[in-house]
């Protein structure tokens, strides 16, 4: 099989050159580079990008190797204790454990929750302070759910972000926007920084560069940097 037959297009040929599978001096390689308008300098710059990627990988690996060698600091016991509290929902900052309840259980759960709310209302519990009141008494309940998140669902444009919750004394809000198809280790596409009001209006020129489908999260922090509220929504705008 000739080199040309192994690849479907010139992009694949250039990928093979970059990976050292194919010499740039090979006739097929030279032809593909010429067709793509790639000169020696361009190829060198792409190799420099690859070197940066390799350097990043080395940095990560070295960091982990150093971490393996460290004998001091918090031990496995502490990490294990945290994970066990998270697994059992007993961690003060915990959301629920990640697996979702089967749909068939949803109705009984909702019914039980509704009954509980009714009892709470009849007991006049709603006359007490908001869950995010800065007293610290409700911290063991975990973060409250932040409601009324906009944008949500199909929208013309992302425009202004807003949500409905109170700011804890000395606290702040933070919005993180992710590509809907994000990988777990991907940083957000955008971050609001610290907000003191429940709205954020990123520049339209910036949002124009965002993916069409986003997932966004808002966290409400108190003055001790503890997450007191959390909300998330998906929004989608038409493709440009």
């Amino acid at each position: 099989m000739s080199a040309r037959d192994r690849y479907e297009n010139r992009e694949q040929i250039i990928a093979a050159i970059l990976q050292g599978e194919l010499s740039p001096q090979d006739d097929v390689a030279r032809a593909a580079l010429a067709e793509e308008g790639i000169h020696v300098d361009d190829l060198a710059e792409m190799q420099a990008v690859i070197a940066e990627l390799e350097a990043t990988n080395l940095y990560e690996q070295k960091l982990l190797k150093e971490a393996d060698a460290v004998q001091t600091g918090p031990g496995i016991d502490e990490v294990e204790s945290t994970l066990r509290r998270l697994q059992t929902g007993k961690h003060p900052k915990v959301s629920k454990p990640t697996p979702q309840a089967p749909v068939r259980l949803l109705f009984p759960i909702l019914a039980a929750a509704a009954a509980l709310l009714l009892v709470a209302w009849l007991g006049g519990w709603f006359s007490s302070e908001s869950p995010i009141d800065g007293s610290g008494n409700n911290q063991l309940l975990g973060p409250t759910t932040i409601q009324s998140l906009l944008p949500s669902g199909a929208v013309d444009d992302f425009g202004q972000f807003s949500f409905d919750t109170d700011l804890a004394p000395g606290g702040w809000f933070e919005i993180l926007v992710y590509d809907r198809d994000f990988e777990p280790n991907d940083p957000p596409v955008a971050s609001s920084g610290d907000l003191l009001v429940p709205t954020w209006a990123p520049d339209a020129k910036v949002t124009k560069e965002w993916p069409e489908k986003i997932h966004w999260e808002v966290r409400s922090y108190d003055s001790s940097r503890v997450v007191r509220g959390f909300g998330e929504a998906d929004a989608e705008r038409p493709e440009h």
């Binding site: 479907e8 992009e11 694949q12 990928a15 970059l18 710059e45 792409m46 420099a48 690859i50």
Partner: peptide, 15 residues
Amino acid sequence: NTAKTHYYRGIAWLR
């Protein structure tokens, strides 16, 4: 081969 196409496009974009 499709993975290679994505790879080249990604490297070109990063460059």
